[in-house]
């Protein structure tokens, strides 16, 4: 069983947010909805939660048609980008909220809240107000609050978007470990491809209201379905008529390999252990190449040097789109 999204359409006035979206999200999996801002991923998430209603199409959660069910009845946990903490309640009261609404006995609530606060490492803050917590702590509380109602599905809308880079990284790992411990079907929305690649079991790439590709992080990175997916998931450069990853380009000082293209190194930057090069081909095209420091030293690369570029064997490539020519009005 899982979440089945079938032919979902949603418009806001003239703006098409989702265009005939169909996808199945398996039970117990951690799935990322990845895409650029405004692409429709948050809208889809909110439709799954019932916070928005689709124009056409159906949502089935664990075999039950939930398309017309009110959000309160879907038993879906939702975590918001800006935490949506109940400011006037303590941390413990926040977490207990869903259980209190369901009129669970007080002892049971207290026990469950305790358990959850331990899970998210916020036990010592139980009686503090959210204002006294850091952003990362607030988001962990929000997660505990959503998990308290034992949801069938856990939905997170850009959960780490409002946090510092360092806290974001920490919480990413933490979310992955949490999911391993509590394997609820989880869907999270992000526009950060690194986050999706690091955390998710499976990624759904959404752009302009449409699904571009569904697959594991490796599949998406190594076998992108189109130029958009390739470009969104990592750096892309063009060599000849192919688009490929900068680190998939072999550099040689002589034109040994067949099909290698001549270029001169225009810019040479060292970043950590990587060396990033920009090389200009004879027809004026610029190619990005990434190689290791050791390799660059071995070849004694420097600005102005003439090199020969070839795609590495087995590299993921996508045929180039129409060359971008500036059309002048005729």
């Amino acid at each position: 069983m899982s979440i089945d999204i079938s032919h979902i359409n949603k418009r806001f006035g003239d703006f098409v947010a989702l265009d005939d979206v169909t996808v199945s999200l398996p039970t117990g999996q951690l799935t990322a909805l990845l895409g650029p801002s405004g692409g429709g991923k948050s809208t889809l998430l909110r439709i799954i939660a019932g916070l928005e209603r689709a124009d056409t199409g159906t949502i089935t959660i664990e075999g039950v048609d939930a398309t017309r069910t009110a959000p309160q009845k879907r038993n879906v946990g939702f975590v918001f980008q800006h935490y949506a903490v109940f400011k006037h309640m303590t941390v413990a009261k926040n977490v207990a909220f869903g259980l209190e609404i369901r009129n669970r006995p007080k002892a049971e609530i207290a026990e469950r809240v305790d358990e959850l606060l331990k899970l998210v490492h916020l036990s010592q803050f139980a009686h503090r107000l959210p204002a006294q917590l850091s952003g990362g702590q607030r988001q962990r509380m929000a997660l505990a609050r959503a998990l308290a109602i034992q949801p069938k599905v856990l939905l997170l809308d850009e959960p780490f978007g409002a946090l510092d880079a360092k806290v974001r990284k920490e919480l990413r790992e933490w979310l992955r470990r949490l999911h391993d411990e509590v394997p609820v079907t989880t869907v999270f929305v992000t526009h950060d491809q690194e986050e999706a690649l690091e955390v998710a079991d499976e990624i759904v790439v959404i752009n302009d209201g449409r699904i571009e590709q569904v697959g594991s992080p490796d599949q998406l990175y190594d076998a992108p379905a189109n130029d958009f997916v390739m470009g969104f998931l990592g750096e892309v450069t063009q060599l000849g008529q192919e688009r490929l990853r900068p680190h998939d380009i072999e550099i040689a000082l002589t034109p040994d390999l067949a099909g290698s293209i001549a270029a001169d190194i225009l810019r040479y930057t060292r970043v950590g252990f990587e060396v990033r090069l920009v090389a200009g081909t004879e027809d004026g095209h610029e190619v990005s190449v990434v190689t290791t420091r050791a390799h660059a030293r071995a070849l004694a690369l420097e600005e102005g040097a003439r090199v020969w570029l070839t795609p590495a064997s087995g590299a993921a490539t996508v045929p180039a789109m129409e060359p971008q020519v500036l059309e002048t009005a005729s």
Binding site: P71, Q72, F78, F80, H88, I101
Partner: peptide, 30 residues
């Protein structure tokens, strides 16, 4: 200013309109 995030969170946690009003909205605008 407070936006309706908290109210949406309450809804997602199972609160109906009246419960949301009484427990979340009114205390916030006290």
């Amino acid at each position: 200013e407070i936006g309706d995030d908290q109210e949406q969170a309450a809804t997602s946690l199972g609160a109906n309109a009246f419960q949301t009003l009484r427990r979340i909205t009114l205390p916030a605008i006290k």
